[in-house]
Amino acid sequence: MRNQCGIVRDLLPSYIDGLCSNESKEFIEIHNKSCDACREVLNQMKTEVSFPNEKDRVERLTAKKPFKKLKNILIISISSLLILAVILTAIVFEYLNQPRPVDTNSIIIQEIVIENNQLTVIGDTAHSALWYSGEYEINYDGVETLYLIPRYRQVSKENSSGRFVINHEFRGELLELDLASINKIYLQGKNPSDIRLIWER
């Protein structure tokens, strides 16, 4: 029996790892049914494999922590980059979508009508990328001249072309303006010095 115990205990590591042959496995199991000492050794070995000592457990947990920290840093970095990309996209879109005056040589005036206290200007743009925003500004010099500033966007849902029609009814500050006294209308661009005469009485 003692000789068998020595053989069985030599085979137990392979038995636990599932590496021994079927014959050896059967031999160990038959022997352990009748040998309390070998059965106890087997149980002890299984416990040590399943539950390593505290030092080993702490070492394994500590070894995993750097990778966990690296994973968290990576997730935070990617999330931050995505948020930054969304913010930058929104800023660029807002910038492109801001209505702004353009160079006067980019605008083609087709018709101007002044009647019944209303100014109508029909025009187009020489560049298809400049879409009329529907916004404009009219300034009066207080004597005889109006300055028209149509505003365009590079991105627009309102108008997919550069064509525009301005129907301006004079009211508010210009309510008392006598259109009969207007002799000139200038188109004004983004620079105050960029003006072009588009109508003269």
Rank of each mutant, 00 (worst) to 15 (best):
138 I>D: 00
174 L>Q: 05
109 I>R: 00
154 Q>T: 12
156 S>W: 09
154 Q>P: 02
125 T>R: 08
95 Y>P: 04
78 I>S: 12
78 I>K: 13
58 V>G: 05
85 A>F: 08
122 I>M: 03
93 F>E: 09
155 V>T: 06
144 E>F: 05
75 I>P: 02
77 S>C: 13
119 L>S: 00
109 I>S: 02
120 T>H: 06
93 F>T: 11
79 S>F: 11
88 L>E: 13
64 K>S: 04
95 Y>T: 13
109 I>F: 00
127 H>D: 15
156 S>C: 10
151 R>T: 12
87 I>H: 12
97 N>K: 08
143 V>K: 11
72 N>D: 08
158 E>Q: 15
65 K>D: 04
168 H>Y: 01
130 L>Q: 04
127 H>G: 13
149 I>G: 01
172 G>D: 09
158 E>R: 15
160 S>I: 10
138 I>P: 01
110 Q>L: 06
154 Q>K: 06
68 K>Y: 09
175 L>M: 11
87 I>R: 11
99 P>H: 01
117 N>V: 05
162 G>Y: 02
58 V>A: 11
125 T>H: 05
165 V>P: 01
104 T>Y: 00
159 N>Q: 05
74 L>N: 13
52 P>N: 02
65 K>R: 07
85 A>M: 08
58 V>C: 06
62 T>F: 06
172 G>A: 07
171 R>T: 11
80 S>Q: 07
158 E>V: 14
56 D>V: 12
123 G>H: 01
135 E>H: 11
117 N>T: 08
176 E>Q: 12
117 N>M: 05
73 I>R: 11
154 Q>R: 08
141 D>V: 00
75 I>T: 11
167 N>S: 15
61 L>T: 09
78 I>L: 13
139 N>W: 09
79 S>A: 15
78 I>Q: 10
107 I>S: 00
177 L>P: 01
51 F>T: 13
100 R>L: 10
75 I>R: 12
175 L>S: 14
105 N>G: 04
161 S>H: 07
82 L>Y: 06
164 F>S: 01
111 E>A: 07
148 L>F: 13
104 T>R: 00
76 I>V: 13
81 L>W: 06
123 G>D: 00
87 I>W: 07
89 T>H: 12
109 I>K: 02
150 P>K: 04
100 R>T: 13
53 N>Q: 10
148 L>W: 03
62 T>D: 02
99 P>L: 03
55 K>M: 03
85 A>P: 06
89 T>D: 08
85 A>C: 11
70 L>G: 13
76 I>K: 15
56 D>A: 05
67 F>C: 12
132 Y>G: 03
140 Y>S: 09
100 R>F: 05
82 L>W: 06
55 K>G: 09
173 E>P: 02
130 L>H: 01
120 T>C: 08
124 D>F: 05
167 N>Q: 15
86 V>A: 13
53 N>L: 07
113 V>C: 09
74 L>C: 12
84 L>E: 10
147 Y>C: 01
101 P>V: 06
67 F>M: 14
155 V>Y: 04
103 D>A: 13
66 P>N: 04
158 E>K: 15
68 K>D: 09
78 I>T: 14
172 G>P: 04
158 E>W: 09
